[in-house]
């Protein structure tokens, strides 16, 4: 075990914290650092990171996306792995950067090498590091929402559930249609807010009907959307990022909660 731990200490992980976590919910960043360090990684948080560029990419602005992506790639090149507490941003970095640079002779190789190293947090812990259980204790019930990009681009489904199953005192209750979109969709939530509202209304009903104390997910964008709806409608469900629970860091007020 000691040898294993020592080799793991060699693993250099760059934490891509995501722009939303950076701006709205630093706790998720600290929880991610704790989980990675507990698993034996040396964690680095490059100051040069801002955003993965997804808002520009999904708005059709390829040029701006490239400008941002080149900086992200350069900032994270020194590390063995790049880990993000978000399926959506990890999908951007590991899938869409390849497409972004596929006709760029100068950057293609670099972008692909970078993309190979990128993982979503719970998938990195279980699939790459082989973590079987985390040390956290959180009492109560939780329901888990599968965010779309993590689920369908990266195949993140069992990984967070497996880790949550190991949290002492926590019971997972599945909601209906956990794998259906919450209606966030980045700028979609603002540009087509009526439609987004219809989708998140249905999601909020499914969350309430699951009768769990907490709602968890792996993407802050979706969480803010669902929390915003639940709170507007007066729901008592506590909304948290899955990393907070896995790290046992639930002393801060929940997302959008007092």
């Amino acid at each position: 075990m000691t040898a294993d731990r020592e080799t793991r200490e060699q693993v250099q992980v760059g934490l891509f914290v995501t722009c939303l976590v950076d701006l709205f919910r630093p706790t998720v960043g600290f929880a991610s650092v704790k989980l990675l360090e507990d698993a034996g990684c040396q964690v680095h948080v490059p100051k040069a990171q801002t955003c993965c560029g997804q808002p520009a990419w999904n708005s059709g602005d390829r040029k701006s996306t490239k400008g941002i992506a080149e900086r992200v790639i350069a900032a994270f090149e020194p590390f063995d792995y790049v880990v993000a507490p978000s399926g959506s941003c990890a999908g951007m970095l590991s899938h869409h950067y390849r497409e972004l640079f596929d006709r760029d002779e100068q950057w293609r190789e670099r972008a692909n090498r970078f993309a190979d190293k990128v993982h979503e947090l719970t998938s990195f812990l279980t699939d790459v590091l082989g973590v079987e259980a985390v040390a956290a204790k959180v009492r109560g019930t939780a329901t888990y929402h599968d965010s779309c990009a993590g689920l369908r681009e990266l195949g993140v489904r069992e990984q967070p559930r497996k880790l949550l199953a190991g949290v002492k005192g926590l019971k997972l209750k599945e909601m209906k249609d956990a794998h259906v979109c919450c209606g966030f969709g980045g700028t979609f939530a603002v540009k087509y807010s009526d439609i987004s509202n219809a989708i998140v209304t249905e999601k909020a009903d499914n969350i309430d009907n699951a009768k769990a104390r907490m709602l968890l997910a792996g993407d802050l964008g979706c969480l803010m959307n669902m929390a915003g709806k639940l709170k507007r409608d007066g729901s008592a469900v506590e909304v948290r990022h899955v990393a907070e629970v896995l790290a046992g860091m639930v002393d801060q007020p929940p997302i959008g909660g007092e």
Binding site: L23, R25, V28, G29, F30, S193
Partner: peptide, 22 residues
Amino acid sequence: DGWTAHRDLPAPQGGTFIARYH
């Protein structure tokens, strides 16, 4: 207002992660 017409916007915890971490 597209956002806040239908839902609240959860407020930031205050201070960015990167600043606080470093």
